[in-house]
Design a protein around this nucleic acid. Sequence first.
RNA 1: GGCGCUAUCGUCUAGUGGUUAGGACAUGGCCCUCUCAAGGCCAAGGCACGGGUUCGAAUCCCGUUAGCGCUACCA
Length: 472
Amino acid sequence: MPRVRFAPSPTGYLHIGSARTYVFNWLYARKHKGTVILRIDDTDVDRNTEESLASIYDGLRWLELGWDEEYRQSERTELHRRMAQVLLEKGLAYRDFTPADPTKDSDAERSGPWLFNPEMRNLSPEESARRAAAGEPFVLRFRVPRNGHVLRFHDRVYGFQERATGEIEDFALVRSNGQPTYHMASCADDIDLRITHIIRGQDHLANTFKHLLIFEGLGVQPPEFAHLPLLIAPDGSKLSKRRHGAVVSVTTYRDAGFLPHAFVNFLCLLGWSPKDNREYMTLTELIEAFNLEGIKRANAVVNFTDKDPLDPKAVWLNSQHLRAMPIEELARRVRPLMERAGLPVPGDEAHFYRLLDVLRTRYQTLNDFVTRGIAYFSDDYPIEPAALEKLNAPGARELLHELADRLETDAEFSEQSVENILRGLAAERGVKAGLIINAARAALTGQTVGPSAFTVFVMLGKDRVLRRLRRV
RNA sequence: GGCGCUAUCGUCUAGUGGUUAGGACAUGGCCCUCUCAAGGCCAAGGCACGGGUUCGAAUCCCGUUAGCGCUACCA
């Protein structure tokens, strides 16, 4: 049974690229009856924030794709240090007492790659131990083989990869403050948690060789790897929380009234395809269709603009899910939004369902029900300027009042009976039925767009209709 | 700078030597129609560039360009 992990670091909110990585991990695990592990990679204590952690949970929970096990890396540092110690004792790692120098980080004037500091790498074990015992700070580095050793692995997405160890620098395993680095902590945990498949962003493709070294050094068979292409901004730059702000946060989609699994559907289509032209897919269909081989290697653009933070395809998919989902579930999701918006939820459930069902074909998000749909639930709705124009058409108000009088005696009050009465009135007065129809819609909903006017009559019910027609 | 990954309509993608390069979103039009949607139909729009290999290349190879990733105690 596969064991996969999603390992976000709490240094910002959950952005959609991370969310997609989670989705792919989840899908893979569910498809193969495996286990999903959430591991918070919070080894960088200086950059982690509680706020970020909360927003990651927020986003993840919203997706409605549950995980099975959960760990916090910061609570496992003993394990990481122990494994680092094993590497040191095996002679596969060494202490580097060179003081940290932030200026070395700049890529200016770089002629070639830095690989290691020979003096430190060649320090005798005795001297190394002596200096460490004396309290001199050091960073623990992996002693990367300098012979012709070549590392190889097969990536499930990017295929066969190889690299000579001679090109890899002696990377850090434990910082001078005693904190294990990402590479050390990640591999130690992957081993300890018996991770079988590492599905992660392509930004780790090059790092994988380092991880191979650690796995090998610890005498462990490395897991399988599948690296995912990155999600990028329309200008080709990488998605960054700093540059692109909230548009890349999953909460943007949540707050816009997206259905979690519609959003998941959208995320899947960024870099993966079922290859049979399907786009709209339920979660069940996604699980069934998902495979690592369907992932492509090129980065994908998330199509947002300053004006519209939502990718149009995501919106379309959401509207598809909105139309196709069971009406009971739709009601369950709309209800809390209505309550929050102060709109009364119809007591008659069947009636509520009917309303939602009529409205859903022209709405795109959950939010539409409580914004564009106000008039269907409450008497307190705004009259849009365009609607006012319809009402101001010559004779419109008088006709609506007359219509109200005639409807009052209509016991049946069905779409058909209402239509007969309305058309009868139009014919009598020698006006086009459309005039009354459009004016009626404007009066009843405050809008010029919406469902068939006759449907609106019946949905609102006789009392409301008469009241609204007469008060214009 | 070094190493690596990638490159099909505006966007997401199918395509692994022979296709009129297919689908979806978005865009424009038509149908339907009491409006708006939905739905149906149609249109426009693409193989980054240059060399090879081959009877034949979006597909294989090389180069260029561009983007991205990694590159001395971020993850």
